[in-house]
């Protein structure tokens, strides 16, 4: 059991660093380097690349979270807050992702300030859900 706990503790700390980085990314601290696109790739607009990356990464994380909660529901019953967060994600994520995709497409078609603002708002909502799921998975609810 002691070894198990040590293993757990070791693994516990490292992902928290990932969550901390995620929080920094999600809530807008400036990146150390600006993203650029290698020529010849699928994207010519770096904003659309970053938007698509944010949408797909967030969906992957949210999907992992709700799957994990379902698979471990019995064990996790003593922390009802986790299921509460998972159900909130289940209720909000599909709409949030669809809204982000719609805003992304509107921005791709017309790069107006209004469309950029709508895109920013929808991505912020999605990122907040992803952050909430990350923290919940690591016992920080």
């Amino acid at each position: 059991m002691r070894n198990l706990v040590q293993t757990f503790t070791h693994r516990w700390v490292h992902p928290w660093a990932a969550v901390a980085c995620l929080a920094l990314v999600l809530f807008g601290l400036p990146a150390c380097k600006k993203t650029t696109l290698a020529p010849g790739g699928a994207y010519t607009d770096v904003t659309l690349y970053q938007t698509d990356k944010t949408i797909t990464s967030s969906e992957a994380l949210l999907h992992s979270f709700v799957s994990w909660e379902l698979q471990n529901r019995t064990l996790l019953a003593q922390w009802p807050e986790i299921k509460k967060v998972a159900d909130a994600v289940r209720g909000q994520a599909p709409g949030a992702i669809k809204a982000a995709i719609a805003a992304r497409d509107a921005y791709a078609n017309a790069k107006t300030a209004e469309n950029a603002n709508t895109l920013s708002i929808t991505l912020t909502t999605l990122k907040a859900l992803a952050l909430q799921a990350s923290v919940s998975m690591l016992g920080g609810t």
Partner: peptide, 13 residues
């Protein structure tokens, strides 16, 4: 269960 959760987040690092 929590190690599995940690793995998921680590995978996204």
């Amino acid at each position: 269960a929590f190690t599995a959760a940690a793995d998921l987040v680590e995978k996204l690092a």
